[in-house]
Every structure is written in C-alpha cells, then in structure tokens.
C-alpha cells in the first residue's frame, strides 16, 4: 500500500529553490481569511483553514520594521553589518529578508520602498528601490 500523506502546495525546499533559482517568492493564500504568507504550513496560522492555496508573492514592498546587525548570524559572517527587514509586499503578504547593501542605521527608514533581488547568497535579499541592485 502506498503511503498517503497530506500535501502542501509546495515544500520548504521548493520555496528556497524558488527564490534562489527562479527569482520567485512562493507563498500561501488562505481562501477563508485571506492571509497571505511565505511561512510554510498545511493550514492557515491565522484561522486554521486547511488546505492552503499556492500564491506567488509580489516582489516589491515597504519596510515595516528593521534592524542593522553588527553581530551577524553564522551564515552571514562576511556580510556584517547588514539590515534584517520585515517587508509588507504589494499584493499582500509580510516576509522577512536581509539587505547586504545597507551598512548604516541611517541608510534605511521604516516606510522605505524595497524590492526583492535574486541572489546566490543565503536567504531572501531586498534592495532599496532607489539603489543599484546588489552584486550577485
């Protein structure tokens, strides 16, 4: 007998491959409460609906909170300082990411417009709309 397991529209691995290789931020949309999120799950973390629908998230958005990290995570040793950002994406969904080109607290403000940039570095990278794309 074959194994029967519930499926999500995509896996965590497919999400990572999505932004690393095809420049797409994959996420989930809840048909009940409308929550859009990148965070993996089988059911909606807000209302509990199962299953969730696949959603391609927008690539532009607005910074709602950030920090400039001078003591980095261990995968980011050569990149500090950098900004860790929470971004509200146009079209729905709030995601986190990082901005290697932001080197000072004064270079970024809550409310700034940013866009997702494809990268071979770890994680989801953003750049300011008025800045040059970050080096690949």
């Amino acid at each position: 007998m074959s194994e029967i397991m519930v499926e999500a529209p995509h896996s965590v691995e497919e999400y990572v491959k999505g932004y690393e290789e095809s420049g797409k931020l994959r996420g989930f949309r809840c048909a009940n409460c409308g929550q859009v999120t990148a965070t993996w799950g089988l059911a909606c973390s807000r209302c509990g609906r199962f299953p969730l629908d696949e959603a391609e998230l927008g690539s532009k958005g607005k910074v709602v909170a950030f920090t400039l990290l001078t003591v980095p995570g261990d995968e980011f040793l050569n990149d500090a300082p950098y900004a860790y950002v929470v971004v509200d994406l146009d079209g729905g969904g709030r995601v986190t990411g990082w901005m290697p080109t932001v080197k000072s607290e004064t270079e970024l403000e809550i409310g700034d417009r940013v866009h997702f940039v494809t990268s071979y570095k770890p994680g989801v990278q953003f750049a300011k709309d008025d800045s040059a794309p970050s080096p690949r």
Partner: peptide, 14 residues
C-alpha cells in the same frame, strides 16, 4: 524559524 527568519539573517538580538 530557520528557513523563514534565521536564513534571512536574523539573530535572536536581531
């Protein structure tokens, strides 16, 4: 959350 926070550069202080 490793893939959705830490992998994007988050630390605990961050």
């Amino acid at each position: 959350d490793y893939p959705f926070e830490t992998k994007n550069g988050a630390t605990f202080p961050g």
